[in-house]
Amino acid sequence: MAFQEVIFWVLAVSSVAAALGVVLLRDIFRAALLLVVVFLAVAGFFVMMNAEFLAVVQVLIYAGAIAILIIFAIMLTREVQQGNLPNRLQPAAVLFPVLLLAALVFVAVDTDWNLLQDQSRELQDNVEVVQTHTIGGIPDEMRGDIPGSDRSGLGELLINDFVLPFEIASMLLLAAIIGALVLVRER
């Protein structure tokens, strides 16, 4: 078993266990702490999949900002100890996620994906170059060999192909800031 696989299984088991803890624990404060564990595990997955930038963002935004926000909210609402009761929808809430899980697993396993490992050696090499240069893009001396590499790296994609969603996202964040301020303002 390769080292990578060991890491994967450790992260997978711990993330699933932590996620179960998030939704099942009575103590909501501990649930929030387990959520941080899930976030960090996911950051680990990102690293394993050559998404270092996302891993860093995940740690900063999720494990940092969002987790802190949630803990603040938990403390402000003072229902820490007995705060996480189930409601009356247990049967449906169990049954349908399980069914959906079965369907999703079936799709993931059964589908005939157009996988990278089945492609030509050259394409695999080129993709590897792209994936290992998500930040800053591909160095100039290597560009000649790789088609379409003039827009490589997340930054180039964001300000070229995805510039409109990018701008809309900024509007969304602005709206969210104002909305949150209005919601919690003392009247």
Partner: peptide
Amino acid sequence: SAILFCIGLYGALARRNVIT
């Protein structure tokens, strides 16, 4: 991913606490 999603879905459907 599917497992985590469905755990999340269960939590969103079945828990009373809005923070959960």
